[in-house]
Each structure stands twice: as C-alpha cells, then as structure tokens.
Design a protein around this nucleic acid. Sequence first.
DNA 1: GATAATCGCTGACAATAGTCAGATAAACTG
DNA 2: CAGTTTATCTGACTATTGTCAGCGATTATC
Lengths: 291, 291
Amino acid sequence: MLTDQIARTRRFYRAVTAESGALDSSYLGLGRPLGPARVLNAIGQGMEELDQIRNYLRIDSAQLSRYLRGLEDEGLVTTRISGSDSRCRIATLTDAGAEEIRSYERLSDEQASTVLARHPRPKALLDAMDLVAIAFGLDRTRYEIVSPSDPRAQACLNAFYTELSQRFERGFDVAKSCDPDHADMTPPRGAFLLMMLDRLPIGCAGLKGTDHGYAEIKRMWITPAARGMGLTHRLMAEIEDKARALGINTLRLDTNSILTEACAYYRKHGWTEIERFNPDPYPDLFFEKKL
Amino acid sequence: MLTDQIARTRRFYRAVTAESGALDSSYLGLGRPLGPARVLNAIGQGMEELDQIRNYLRIDSAQLSRYLRGLEDEGLVTTRISGSDSRCRIATLTDAGAEEIRSYERLSDEQASTVLARHPRPKALLDAMDLVAIAFGLDRTRYEIVSPSDPRAQACLNAFYTELSQRFERGFDVAKSCDPDHADMTPPRGAFLLMMLDRLPIGCAGLKGTDHGYAEIKRMWITPAARGMGLTHRLMAEIEDKARALGINTLRLDTNSILTEACAYYRKHGWTEIERFNPDPYPDLFFEKKL
DNA sequence: GATAATCGCTGACAATAGTCAGATAAACTG
DNA sequence: CAGTTTATCTGACTATTGTCAGCGATTATC
C-alpha cells in the first residue's frame, strides 16, 4: 500500500513536470533566455537585494552580475547602491521592465485560465491545487499587517463568517456579533494580520486593542486546505509577537465550544479559561493568556 | 472571483515548480547532465524508437544522436537497426544502464516518500495529487488488457466493490453477485481492460463472453478522482472496439438504478433497456446494445 | 587602526544545449 | 528504376549556463 502511495506521488510529479514544461517555456515566450528572464521576474516579484535574488534563484554571483548588466543594457532594470550598506546593490525595474513583467503576467494568467477552462470540474481541481500548493509551500508563508478593510482581509473574513454560519446551529450574523471597530484593529491600538502564501491569503487573525488593560484576539481563521499542518500555532505565535511589540501583556479571546479544534488548541497552549467578559451572543467559552 | 481562481492556479504552479526543482535535479543526482539523463530515463521507461524519444523529449535529431553515442560509450545503452525499417534504430538498455535506472528509481521513490512523510494529512494530499495528476494527464491515458487476477485489476475491483457496498442500501457482497469466471473475461472469450495513467490504473471494464450470442460488460469502474471528465465514454468506446475485434456484435449489461450517472450514460449512448436476463440479486436495470 | 570578512564585479574558461547544412543509407512512389 | 522522401549521423558553429580566481570597495572585528 505504501508502494502504491509512492507510485501515486510520482505520477503526480510526472504530470506536473510534463505540464509545467509548457509553463517554463512561457518565460521564454518573451524571447529571452531563461536565466535573464528568471532574474527579471524575480525583481518583478519584489526582490531587490542582489543577495536575495541570488539565493532564490540559486545562481552564482558572477552569473547574476552578467545577467543584470545585460538587462541594464536593454533598459529593463537599473541598479543602485544600497543606502544601508554601500557594498550591496539594489535592483529596480524601469518602466520598460515593468511593462515586460506585465506582459509575462498576462501570459501566465492566460495559461492558468486555459488549464481551468479545459477542466470539467474546475472547483474540485482548484481545491486540490490549493491543498498541494499549501502543502508544498509551507516554508514560504509570509505575514502581512493590513487594514481590516483590505479586500484580502475581507475575503478571509467572509470565508470565516460563512463557515461559522454553517457550523453554528442557529447560524451566524456578524451584525449581531461584536464586530470590532477597524480603528481597534489598526496600529497602534491593534493589528490585523494576514498569513500569505505567494500572493494569496491563507489565514488571518485580528488583534483588537481595548481600554481595559488587555487586547483581544478576534477572527482567527485558517483556510480549510491548510488545516492540520500546525499553521494555527505559527499564526498565533506571530500575533503574540505583534502584541508584545505593541506593549500588550494580556490577551483574551472568546470562542464557541462547537469549534472543538480551536478550544483544544487554546487549552494546550497556555490559555486559561475565564469568566464571560463580553455580551456577544455567539461565544460560550472565554480564555486569557499572559504574555 | 475569476481572477482569484487564476491566482490560485498560478500559486499552484509556483509551488510545484519550486518543489520540482528538487525533482529535476534528482536526474542530476546521478552525476549526469540533464540531456543524457533524460534520454536514459526515456529508454528506461520503455521508449525504444529514436523517433519516439525525440518526440517525447523534444530534442533535435543531432542532439539525440550525440547523447546516444555518449551513453553507448559509457556502456549504458546499445542501439540496433530496427527489423521492420532498417533506417530506424532501436535503443536498449544494457545491464549497467538498467542498474542506473534502478538507482534513479530508488532515489525518486525516496523523494516521494519524504514528501508524504512530511505531510500531516498524507491521505488528503494524495487524493489532491491524484486529481491534479489525472486532470493534467488525461491525454496520456493508455489501455492494457490483463488477466482479471492481475493485482492492478484486483485493486480496481476491490475499490469498485467497496464503493458498491457503500452506495447500495443493503451493502454489496461479491460472493452473492454473479462473479464472472476468469476464463470468460480472458481472450478469446472476453477481456479485462485497464485504463492506465502512467503506471497506475484509473479505471477498468470487463468483457465477459457467454454462449448465448452476446457478451456482457461487467465491473465498469473509474476512480473517483477521474470522474466527470468523459473517461467513461473513452473506456466504453475502447471495450466496444475490443468486443468487435473478438467478433462480438451484441453487448449486454446489468446495473442498479442507484448508480444514476451510469444509467444516464447508458441511456444516452445507444443502449436500450431490456428484460432481466440473469438472476443476480443486485442489479435492477438491464441494457443491450448492438454493435 | 590593522586585519579579516563581505559584496559585487570582471576575466578566463569549461560544460552543456541548440541549430543548421550536408552526407549516407534505406524505403517509398510512380 | 530514377526520383523523392525519411531516419540517422557528422561537422561546424553559436548560445547559454556554470565555475573559479582575483580585484576593489566597504564593513565588521578585535
């Protein structure tokens, strides 16, 4: 049975490497050799320090130097000396470079939508791709502090509310819940944290400042495809760090005993159950943690 | 929402290309440049005609020639002139070549099991990988006629029986069903057909010869990850071809009205409902088709 | 403030991959 | 059987990628 699982995994690898042959060559669709194209693309993804680019693309310093000079000659990239350490250099796209990146993006988008369009069950395929992408990308997650009204934050929140309304017997209506003021979840009073993989959010958590000597954790959510992989712990650790950085030393949160995984997590990780501290109708369990 | 789907698809691509960088270099783990390694591997996969190899690897004729000569010099491959067309050549692995392939296989197996071992929900990951692999590999399906006792056939049949026992209200017990004699599903009386993707079966169908002027289609099954993509039709077309080749001109089958997708398919594709023609307790619908 | 370490650059190669124009032999076509 | 097509191979290049040693300039270390 294990050999069967290995065979399935290898079949997957074969399928995607066969498929992504087409993807790799789309880099080349721009009529540029792979090396410089990858560098241009890395810069377009926001990588600036040469060190970072070298590390990501795993190319030699001499190689990168030559690629960069080539891209500079073509007027796609400029480099300047870093302010903080004048040994280091920073690469930036010129307008022409940015335009070239955009055309690459368009091409990739087209390819992606072709893949989806060709499939009779795009939703199932997307879910499967999410699971795989998250499984493989766990080490590349990043955090971002955004406004609670950021569209990516809103997307997470909507998914969260939808899930609550399905899990709670009597449904869930945000309007009836204590929806935190945006100001309370914005620095310096609080924060709203997104966990990102590539450019998509896979989880969120809100830190709501109060005037009562503690802050609350609100709207803690991880996308279903990413559950069971210890991401909750990472996200909580990250938001606790943020809280400490804001000078907060007591955290509270409310939850519902229906959300068994969450409750188990809190009990196991230094949270202690306390008395109800707000009138919100949905929660029935309340926790506190000293930082 | 569509842009979101595209972003998810592209995240998937990024994840697997980042991941399969490791995979690609495992080719190189053998200490051989990518080109010759790919050729060696293609031959190891059973590709023999140079034309076929060139086509699969998309490499130039001159290039392949040189790679082959290099592999010959190393004693990993021999080439001989094809019997049917002496312009063509056939490449075969030597023992040393086969051993090198095996060490590559071991490496790939190890990598695959590492990926699985690292994941907290290997079953979900495997299901997702299957779905993706099948979606991407649809054009590479092959058919194979095997004995019904072949382990791959047995794996399909067990999956089929398990599914039936879940879908039928009173469960399913093969022993109580009319389990066809293996001889009836073996040429020249009949056949057992596997639909393969890479080296794994994704579906099966049995053709059971009888002495009553017709043959029966039995044990028609497609793996869940591959459903909704028109594979039933392909598999049915293939087995009808096989039936014709065996000189069969009337097909019958039995099914249960619970299996709504299957019934809808039969009605739509030239099958006409007929009276019960066997005493099997599980089916309640009977079809016939003239070829 | 001397010494060591780091960063990016250039030069000099070596290895690998891709391309094209014939050459040769075999097979197909009428 | 002459002419054409096909499959493979060789030679001659070019393009691309990978590697190493060493050079200035700058920064870290003691």
